[in-house]
């Protein structure tokens, strides 16, 4: 039981990191960035090349992979979403799906279709605490994910940029009247969300020792489910949603057949949409007039 819980939290912290990107972008633009799974994939490739090919020290490579993915995320917004800011939702949705397919194909072209191994550039030890078997890599994943989430929470709650992001998410027109450059805040949002997705990509790439151009598809969908589960647009919700989804999946696989793993996430999505579409932490968005 405890073993499953640990595995669930490790998986869940990954889902949470991915979910944050969806939820932050949704918060400011009411847009599902379907290219987010591909940002995660791009992060994994960047991490792979920076550590294995360029042999950079891992922390440096990790930060650079996050920065590179941030740049990709900002560019995606610039070319695929910003020109459609005043267009119908459907047009933006199609643009998002198109961007996702484009990035997959670009990656296929640049990296080839084969799965690459991504051995962690540091030694991984098995760790045993009582009944629980884990590894130093799992501990690193959990700690890094938690640090990033705490850092994000600090940024959003305490810094001027974070407050401007929240103000922009609530009311873009009034935010502009405060002297906030709304386009710039939207770029920051994409940058931060993308860098968290890339962090998840690098961690998973090493954890599974596998990186490939289609790797963003399923985690992208799971991250989206986690964001909806927590209440899309809600940052603590995305964190909670990720952890719940990861844990549910691990327990589900333990008690059912492992082929049902992916079905569990989508069953959760359907149940949430039927029972509480605003998610477990979603507020009613009604504002005082």
């Amino acid at each position: 039981m405890l073993q499953q819980l640990v595995n669930g939290l490790v998986l869940g912290s990954i889902y949470a990191l991915i979910a944050l990107g969806y939820t932050m972008v949704y918060g400011v633009l009411q847009l599902i960035n379907f290219a987010h799974g591909e940002i995660y994939m791009a992060g994994a490739f960047l991490g792979l090349y920076l550590t294995v090919s360029l042999k950079l020290p891992f922390p440096v490579a990790f930060v650079l992979a996050m920065a590179g993915a941030a740049l990709i995320g900002v560019t995606v917004e610039r070319i695929a979403y910003r020109p459609l800011r005043r267009s119908p939702r459907l047009a933006v949705l199609i643009s998002a799906i198109g961007m996702s397919i484009f990035l997959q194909n670009l990656s296929l072209y640049l990296n080839g279709p084969a799965t690459r191994g991504f051995l962690p550039p540091f030694k991984v030890y098995p760790i045993r605490i009582g009944e629980i078997k884990t590894s130093s890599l799992e501990v690193i994943i959990l700690v890094v994910a938690i640090l990033l989430m705490v850092g994000l929470q600090y940024l959003i709650r305490r810094t001027k940029i974070g407050k401007a992001m929240r103000a922009t998410a609530l009311d873009k027109e009034t935010a502009a009247l405060m002297g906030i450059n709304v386009d710039r805040i939207i770029s920051y949002t994409f940058a931060i969300g993308s860098s968290l997705g890339a962090a998840a990509g690098v961690l998973v790439g090493m954890y599974l020792n596998a990186v490939d151009p289609m790797m963003g598809l399923m985690p992208g969908l799971k991250g989206f489910v986690a964001a909806v589960l927590g209440g899309i647009g809600n940052i603590p919700g995305a964190m909670a949603g990720g952890l719940i989804l990861g844990t549910a999946e691990v327990f589900g696989v333990a008690f059912m057949r492992s082929e049902w793993r992916d079905a569990i996430a989508f069953a959760i999505l359907i149940v949430v949409l039927l029972i509480k579409p605003s998610g477990i932490l979603g507020q009613n968005t009604q504002e005082k007039v």
């Binding site: 609530l170 027109e173 906030i180």
Partner: peptide, 27 residues
């Protein structure tokens, strides 16, 4: 030039203090 918009449009989920800080954003 600053504007107090129609219908007040305070940032409902920011605190009073944070709303005032947003007013000074460009400074």
């Amino acid at each position: 030039i600053s504007q107090v918009p129609e219908g007040r449009r305070v940032f409902t989920r920011l605190t009073v203090l944070e709303n005032l800080e947003m007013g000074a954003y460009a400074r």
